[in-house]
Structure formats: structure tokens, C-alpha cells
């Protein structure tokens, strides 16, 4: 024993600091990886939304093809599970209303109907669809920023 106490105390403190440092680095690393995974999932989802918007444009400007209509409904159905997939890391998204509004913008009128009428490319419905998609993306980005920034 020297004047500053037993040497094992100093070694123990060193090891505790090393372990704590490792834990902090590990937590930060995991958090960073989760953030990247969530960002990648959201970017994929935004591409998915773009695809739906394009399909909606085709559906409403052309002949209201039943197959395109079914694809739109199927793709709309896949949005919520994709958002759930992007919930890692404690991320929460207030998506219910904007997603409902997006579905509504595309399918409330002139959809799955015997009275289909092709729209002109500059019809207001397309502005509504784009605005609803943007609102959904804003809601998702807000959730992401709230969780990871």
C-alpha cells in the first residue's frame, strides 16, 4: 500500500471508466444505426408514396382501369405496415389522419365507379393528392425529428 491507497482501487476505477465509456459508445452506435435504418425505411416509403401518386394520376387521367385501381388500394394498404416497420428506436408517428386524407384524396371520388370520367392532367384532384402526400410526409418527418434529433 502506498500513500494514495491500495493500487487495486485505481485499477478498479480505470476498469469502471473503460466499461462506462464502452457502454456509452455502444449505445450511441446502436442509436446511430437505428436512425439510419429508420431513415432508409422512410425513404423507401416516400418512393412508395410517389408510386401511388403516379398510379393515381394514370388512373384518373386515363380510363379508370380496374387493375390500376386495385393496385392503388393494395399499395395504400401497405403504407401503415411500412410505417410500423419504421417505428424502431421509439419513433412514433401521428400518421392516422394524414394517411386517411391521402387515401381519401385518391379514392373518394371518381374511383371504383361506373360513372368514371377521365380528368384533365391539371384537375384539382391532383393538387389535393400531392398536398395530402406532402402532409403525410411532414407527419412522418416530424416523428423522425422528434425521436432522433
Amino acid at each position: 500500500m502506498n500513500c494514495c491507497g491500495p493500487s487495486w482501487i485505481g485499477q478498479a476505477i480505470t476498469w469502471v471508466l473503460i466499461c462506462l465509456g464502452w457502454m456509452v459508445v455502444n449505445i450511441q452506435h446502436n442509436r446511430r444505426e437505428t436512425r439510419k435504418e429508420v431513415r432508409a425505411a422512410l425513404l423507401e416509403l416516400y418512393k412508395h408514396l410517389d408510386g401511388i401518386e403516379e398510379a393515381a394520376f394514370t388512373y384518373h387521367t386515363e380510363d379508370g382501369d380496374v387493375a390500376v385501381g386495385r393496385r392503388i388500394k393494395r399499395d395504400l394498404l401497405q403504407i401503415a405496415p411500412r410505417i410500423v416497420m419504421a417505428r424502431r428506436g421509439g419513433a412514433a408517428y401521428a400518421y392516422a389522419k394524414p394517411l386517411g386524407a391521402f387515401r381519401r384524396a385518391i379514392t373518394i371520388e371518381n374511383f371504383d365507379t361506373a360513372q368514371f370520367a377521365a380528368k384533365s392532367p391539371n384537375a384539382p384532384i391532383f393538387d389535393d393528392i400531392t398536398a395530402a402526400k406532402r402532409d403525410l410526409i411532414v407527419a412522418l418527418e416530424s416523428g423522425y425529428l422528434h425521436t432522433f434529433k
Binding site: 381519401r104 373518394i108 371504383d112
Partner: peptide, 11 residues
């Protein structure tokens, strides 16, 4: 369990 819904159906 369905293949999706249109808002016109739901409304």
C-alpha cells in the same frame, strides 16, 4: 384481410 379499401366504399 381485404385487398384494400377505397374511401368511396368506406364513406
Amino acid at each position: 384481410g381485404t385487398a384494400g379499401y377505397g374511401s368511396s366504399f368506406l364513406e
